[in-house]
């Protein structure tokens, strides 16, 4: 019984540390990606506003475009 309790306490401690690191790591990752310019997360807010079929996509899904072009070539 004692051994289990001790083991639980260690597991609890390290799990907490792990989660805190993950959480702050993710926040850091989000801000870093923006600072380095690899990603601009805030522009995705536009996805809800510019949502007409005729609006230009915020980021074009190239996979779909390629597929369409291939289909065209075949037919």
């Amino acid at each position: 019984m004692e051994a289990i309790r001790e083991w639980q306490a260690y597991a609890y401690f390290f799990l907490t540390v792990f989660l805190v690191v993950m959480l702050y790591g993710y926040i850091l990752h989000l801000y870093r990606a923006e600072k380095k310019g690899t990603r601009d997360y805030e522009k995705y807010g536009k996805l809800a506003l510019d949502d007409e079929l005729t609006d230009a996509p915020v980021e074009l899904n190239e996979a779909r475009e390629n597929e369409k072009n291939e289909n065209k070539e075949q037919s």
């Binding site: 915020v58 899904n61 779909r64």
Partner: peptide, 8 residues
Amino acid sequence: MRREKTLY
């Protein structure tokens, strides 16, 4: 089938 790459 989506045109928009990123999922909102």
